[in-house]
């Protein structure tokens, strides 16, 4: 059963002249109960904006122009601010990228976790504190009884991220949005955080929407992957299909440009990494034709003469938006 359904979501930004500039175009996807879906792409592709749109926390000047977001059948876009507020933290919650800026430096971590519990579960001071300590234990923070009174600056980056996860889990959400939860962390800590997320997901049965720029890293975590480019979904499908048989040139590029660690084998002499030349077109410079056109090594006349192809199914649970791939139609 689907938990979250996003149906042709369009988000725009009002620029200095007051014109609307498209940020996310026609994004549709769904997340089933207990599943992990990953949104992958470079900076500026609209991953974080999608997450913020789902939470209805978009910055000023950003508007959802059309589309529907259904959480368990309820249309989030028609809810009042008050109703939305009661959903955030309880039905859906978010782990932000930078734990140092997302935590309030003036309150102890215990207070910040307890806030969720007071708001949504109406717990009193001591009961909330007890729960906060229990949650810190769940995210494997040693000496939780003492740490509950610590301020964010007294904790290391990995610990802060664990606190963020504890906060996000406090309301037992059905949907957990994790926006690059490990980019600011060391590799050993990254591995621990990913393990922790997977473990907690097993226990709580929450669905996870994981946002990342490293396609290789999410391959084993995610059930489904959506590759975003310049605000458009250009490839979507079951995780194993996308990683083993990527069809869009951008997805292939993303997979090739990461030097993957190989164990027990001497490294080969340096061969230049497969790079994707150029960069993501900035907002406002995106035309109707394929957004990847300028960077694509396979671009042909058909790509130049026609608009961005629709996301077309090319197999069971695998869709791609590319003229050069089978099934490119408008």
């Amino acid at each position: 059963m689907t938990l979250l359904e996003v149906d042709s979501l369009n988000v725009s930004m009002r620029n200095a002249e007051g014109h609307l500039v498209s940020v996310i175009e026609n994004l549709s996807f769904s997340v089933a109960h207990g599943q992990t879906t990953a949104l992958v792409g470079e900076s500026g592709c609209g991953k974080s904006m999608t997450a913020l749109a789902l939470m209805r926390l978009l910055p000023e000047d950003f508007v959802i122009t059309s589309g529907r977001i259904l959480l368990e059948g309820r249309d989030l876009l028609s809810l009042s601010a008050k109703e939305m507020r009661s959903l955030r933290g309880r039905a859906m919650s978010m782990i932000f990228q930078e734990p140092m800026t997302a935590l309030n430096p003036l309150f102890t971590v215990g207070d910040q976790i307890a806030e969720v519990l007071r708001w949504h579960q109406g717990l009193g001071g001591s009961a909330a504190r007890e729960r906060a300590i229990a949650l810190l234990r769940v995210v494997q923070i040693p000496a939780a009884e003492q740490r509950v009174d610590a301020y964010p600056h007294q904790l290391s980056g990995g610990m802060r991220q664990r606190v963020m996860i504890a906060m996000a889990l406090a309301g037992r959400p059905k949907l957990l949005i994790a926006d690059e939860p490990t980019t600011a962390l060391d590799v050993t800590v990254q591995a621990q955080i990913f393990d922790l997320l997977a473990e907690l997901q097993q226990e709580t049965g929450a669905a996870v929407l994981l946002i990342t720029h490293d396609l290789g890293a999410v391959a084993e975590l995610a059930d489904e992957i959506l590759v975003l480019y310049a605000g458009r979904c250009i490839e979507a499908g079951v995780s194993a299909d996308i990683v083993e048989a990527p069809r869009h040139p951008y997805t292939r590029g993303l997979l090739n440009c990461v030097p993957h660690f190989t164990l027990g084998r001497a490294p080969k002499p340096w061969v230049d990494l497969g790079e994707i030349p150029g960069m993501v077109p900035p907002l406002g410079a995106r035309g109707a034709d394929c957004a990847f056109l300028a960077r694509c090594a396979l671009a042909a006349d058909i790509c130049r003469s026609r608009p961005q192809p629709a996301l077309d199914p090319i197999g069971p649970g695998h869709a791609v938006s590319c003229w050069r791939e089978a099934g490119g139609t408008t």
Binding site: L254, C257, V258, D272, L273, P277, M279
Partner: peptide
Amino acid sequence: LDVAIQAQILNLLKR
């Protein structure tokens, strides 16, 4: 840097 840009910079440094 993003993974795609990271590859560009690494290639540049090697060259």
